[in-house]
């Protein structure tokens, strides 16, 4: 394969922290893990939290700090969702890897403890059978192998596995941490980002640093070195606030034809409806002049429409249904239809 051009490397990879202590904002986790690194006494670990908070980065950094680069290949097994991880793989590949015994010995500044590490990224997408098959494997080979599980939702990891691990929760990044990291990247890449664009970036990415960096790189590729907040919104696919507001006020007006027109124009502009729903949802929840009961009725329909969209239903009709329901709730029209049932 041709050597990758430096510029074609995604910034997410380029600026991934190499050391555990560089991981931003997760202070408790970093403290515990640093301790682990010093004593090389490592339990099984389970990292969970929203995307883009540094779970994979931490796991990889631990592995890189424990083993020298030559040993890394033979000591660490990384499996993520795109690799095959059915029950067969657990029974053969993981088991074989876990069973092999290894020696220890501090070499050239790396602790190189006498165990291997298996990193299971996106573990919540593993089937329950596969997880069950892991239980005994984890215990049998616990002398020579440590497991790191990484997942978004801890509830999808079966209880027996979770109880065998030390759990670490990763919290969403705050705006300040995000801004400081982004401005660091901007300095490195020679980008010009004003403070408004910076705050837009942290608000559209909602605590997901990876997302923010991806948007930043996309915008830099398209619009060159000086980026405004409008450019960022265009790249991210977030719907401009005015358009969401327009639909919301159309719903408030109680005029069905107006709402239908707004829905039509949103579809024609090509905005993804799932995005529209989440932004409209934010607007409804934050609105002061809407009673709690109305909000409840509106949100219920949002949930239904979201499920329908996931099932692959048409965008136009779903959004129209949501708009009409919202209008009925906002204008206190009867929810139950009185005739013809």
């Amino acid at each position: 394969m041709a050597p990758l051009l430096q510029s074609s490397q995604p910034w997410v990879e380029k600026y991934r922290p190499k050391q555990v202590k560089d991981v931003a904002h997760q202070d408790e986790v970093v403290r515990v893990v640093t301790n682990t690194l010093e004593t090389t006494n490592c339990p099984h670990m389970l990292f969970y939290g929203p995307p883009g908070t540094g779970k994979t980065t931490t796991a990889l950094a631990i592995a890189h700090q424990l083993f020298r680069p030559e040993l890394y290949k033979s000591r660490v097994l990384e499996l993520n969702a795109s690799d095959d991880r059915g029950i067969n793989v657990v029974r053969t590949k993981i088991k074989n890897f876990a069973a092999a015994a290894v020696g220890s010995g501090r070499q050239g500044g790396y602790p190189c403890p006498p165990y291997k590490i298996i990193i299971l990224d996106e573990a919540d997408s593993m089937t329950e059978d596969a997880q069950n098959a892991l239980r005994r494997t984890m215990e049998t080979y616990s002398k020579v192998t440590r497991f790191f599980f990484i997942c978004n939702y801890i509830s999808r990891i079966i209880e027996p596995l979770a109880s065998r691990c030390a759990k670490f929760r990763f919290k969403p990044l705050t705006d300040e941490v995000m801004s400081s990291r982004i401005s660091y990247i901007c300095r490195e890449e020679g980008l010009n980002l004003d403070s408004k664009a910076l705050s837009t970036l942290s608000s559209i990415s909602q605590g997901d640093l990876r997302q923010a960096i991806t948007y930043l790189q996309g915008a830099a590729r398209l619009f060159g070195s000086s980026i405004s907040s409008k450019d960022l919104i265009r790249v991210s696919g977030v719907i401009p606030g005015e358009d969401v507001q327009a639909l919301f006020s159309a719903c408030k007006s109680g005029n069905f034809d107006l709402a239908e027109k707004e829905v039509g124009s949103i579809i024609a502009e090509g905005y993804p409806v799932s995005q529209m729903l989440s932004q409209l949802y934010d607007m409804v929840v934050e609105a002061d002049d809407v009673s709690d009961e109305q909000k409840a009725i509106i949100c219920k329909k949002f949930a239904e429409a979201d499920k329908c969209l996931v099932d692959g239903a048409g965008e136009y009709l779903q959004l129209l249904g949501v708009a009409s329901n919202t209008m009925r709730a906002l204008c206190n029209m009867p929810q139950e239809f009185s005739f013809g049932n």
């Binding site: 239903a313 009709l317 329901n325």
Partner: peptide, 24 residues
């Protein structure tokens, strides 16, 4: 929708969304 009262429009658009989902 072109030929309906606004009260009916809400109901019909709801059912259209419902049946479209079913169709899928």
């Amino acid at each position: 929708l072109k030929k309906l009262d606004s009260e009916l429009k809400h109901e019909i658009s709801h059912w259209a969304a419902y049946y479209e989902h079913r169709l899928r």
